[in-house]
Amino acid sequence: MKSNIDIVVIHDNVKRESYLITELQEQYNNVKLIDDADDGIEYISHNFSHKTIVVLDMDFGNGTNGFDVLKAIRQYSFLIEVIILSANEPSDARNALTNNIPELPGLRVFDYVIRGNPNWQEKVIEKVNKAEININGSIMNAIDSWIEIQSKDRRKKPFVITNDGVQYSLDQLKKAIQQNDDTSRKLEEKILMMAIKLMSKTPKE
């Protein structure tokens, strides 16, 4: 069965009939190809869902480039996985992998593939598959999906209070998760810590 996760390829050198797109369509129901960076930003702004994987070019010639698109994506959500596909070795992308762009910390990308290297299409597909596992296995994505299926009323009511006394409704929590802000990071950290504590405290019989 094909996966329902959204795949958006934003690239000016990938054609609709290309092997990459054809093969992605064999595996995924929703594959969208956009050949312009500005159109890519436009599309994401109207259609973003946390269950999206974006395959992104860096170099669109003059004007808006892949980083602008990445920045725009991150404005909407930190849960969207982004795979960079560029003919250049993107040092900025590599930096993004380690969260280390001085001007833009936190612009995380999932991975990058150099277009033109041997078997680049397989590599992209492999990364897309991995990103899908990541999305499905992410604690934050799980919480985000769970919030989505709650009733509107419930989402508006206060749900958690942080140690500093700040109150969060589910809607606010959802926003925090998408922005990957301190609260959401702390929440994730605490859930992980709890899991580790539980694991380490389970006595072996």
Binding site: N13, V14, K15, E17, S18, Y19, A87, G116, W120, Q121
Partner: peptide, 16 residues
């Protein structure tokens, strides 16, 4: 970049 893009496109078609 230019050469790689062309090579990548040719490789893609060949792969197809």
């Amino acid at each position: 970049h230019v050469v790689r893009t062309a090579v990548a496109n040719i490789a893609d078609s060949a792969k197809f």
